[in-house]
Design a protein around this nucleic acid. Structure first.
Length: 440
DNA sequence: TCTGGGGTCCTAGGACCC
DNA sequence: TCTGGGGTCCTAGGACCC
């Protein structure tokens, strides 16, 4: 507690030291608290103050993706199995996520941030870095600017959606600072605070060191951030290689030269995966699930006008081991049918033990399957170019028209016939399936 | 009632070439 | 037949993040 009061002091007098030590940058990390749950509480007054878990439908082996503050007080944690969460907190309300609502609120808070600096780096759906060097003085310094942003966020997003702000000379310390007080925190870390914090914070408190790395560091006799800060660069590079070693060394020093980049990162891949309600060897279920996943990933990819050149597919077995394969396509496409065929071929060896052609309907998976996943990468931005191939142009227009229908009336109003019932027919008899089938 | 789903980045190691 | 060594490219998979 007393340590927090050190780093929380509003005293600006030492900012010159910060300048000389670390280039004088002032970086904010702003992290929305219990984001998904807070958005739900803001949208629905009946949920306010109640223990809420977002995600994890019970019975589907799901987990809690986000817990409200009331739920956290009852011991419900992010990534907790929903059964476990309900055991701890029987009146927990488990609600569905609403990705559109989150994105909407994210756009709103990013607009607020951009009023105060043009260097805003989106780090995830609920957090961003701001470089306010040179901007904060006119608002009375970093803390005053942070408080002003908080007030504006509250006005624009509503009082249920709060944030924690970390202020520091670089991104890694700013992120650490925002973690130190939740919810609704405002913590500043100055360079001279680092030795104090390093003496008691665990290694995994730093973004970039998780359980595996902690264990490897422990084996080298490095148990605290202070130990890490005293480990020579050469020792770290010998053990972890030049890149990871140098990164670790910088973490240990509390340094992070990476700039706050205001570019909106283009997606590099689209992937979807699904854990089945129970493990299965049934090829029909596997086939249909994979098809749905491909359609979902393709729809998301098309919505952002990308096409893929590399398709990979993954299976996780009941024992949690996994296998998969990928294949490069001859050209970039966004059509789920050939993409599915590629993904299906990639999986056959992992599922059936050998490559099959037409007899899928009679074969069972050699091992129980728990999860299936598909991943589209090597993306090409298509920008709605016209093609010289009339067939392809028609197909392209059809897919986008289907997307529109699904966007308007719900995501499975129109699906490929392969996911509805004629599923295995094509592979049994070799007949070409239709491109679409109206379900209702 | 074990262990979700969406990503990014990095590395180790194999293939291939000279 | 006694097979080194260096470079590049590619990919599978690990580690990490929220």
């Amino acid at each position: 507690m007393c340590l927090l009061s050190i780093v929380q002091s509003g005293d600006n007098s030492r900012s010159n030291l910060a300048r000389s030590n670390l280039g004088g940058r002032v970086v904010f990390h702003i992290d929305m608290n219990s984001y998904f749950a807070s958005v739900a509480e803001q949208a629905n007054p009946f949920l306010r103050g109640k223990p809420i878990g977002v995600g994890g439908k019970p019975g589907t082996r799901g987990i809690i993706a986000a817990a409200s503050i009331a739920a956290k007080k009852r011991g419900v944690k992010t990534a907790m199995n929903s059964y476990e969460a309900l055991r701890l907190c029987p009146e927990l309300e488990i609600i569905h996520g609403d990705p559109d609502a989150y994105e909407d609120v994210t756009h709103k808070f990013l607009r607020v941030f951009r009023r105060y600096t043009d260097a805003v780096e989106v780090f995830s759906i609920d957090e961003a870095f701001l470089d306010v060097t040179g901007w904060h003085e006119r608002y009375g310094g970093p803390e005053a600017l942070a408080r002003r942003i908080k007030v504006e966020l509250r006005a624009e997003l509503g009082e249920r959606i709060t944030c924690s702000v970390g202020i520091a000379p670089n991104k890694i310390l700013a992120k650490l600072a925002s973690d130190l007080k939740k919810p609704d925190g405002l913590v500043r870390i100055r360079p001279e605070d680092v030795p104090v914090l390093w003496a008691f914070l665990p290694l995994t408190e730093i973004c970039g060191i998780a359980e595996r790395m902690k264990r490897r560091l422990n084996r080298l006799g490095i148990h605290t951030l202070q130990d890490l800060s005293e480990t020579p660069l050469t020792r770290l590079t010998i053990v972890f290689g030049p890149v990871a070693g140098a990164k670790l060394w910088l973490l240990g020093q509390g340094e992070d030269p990476s700039p706050v980049q205001n570019v909106e990162a283009a997606p590099k891949s689209f992937g979807n995966s699904y854990t089945l309600p129970e493990d299965t060897t049934n090829p029909k279920i596997i086939y249909e699930t994979l098809m749905k996943l491909v359609e979902k990933a393709c729809r998301r990819m098309r919505a952002e006008n990308f096409q893929t050149r590399y398709v990979s597919a993954l299976v996780r077995y009941g024992d949690f081991s996994h296998a998969g394969d990928g294949a490069r396509l001859p050209e970039a496409i966004d059509d789920p049918v050939p993409i599915f065929e590629t993904a299906w071929e990639c999986l056959q060896h992992s599922i059936f033990g050998f490559q099959i052609s037409d007899r899928v309907g009679y074969l069972k998976s050699t091992r129980p399957v728990r999860l299936l996943g598909v991943h589209l990468s090597e993306l090409i931005y298509e920008n709605n170019q016209l093609t010289f191939w009339p067939e392809r142009e028609r197909r392209h227009r059809l897919l986008h028209a289907l997307d529109e229908i699904n966007n308007r009336y719900g995501s499975s109003t129109v699906t490929s016939a392969t996911t509805t019932g004629v599923v295995l027919k094509r592979h049994v008899s070799g007949f070409k399936y239709g491109t679409a089938l109206i379900k209702r």
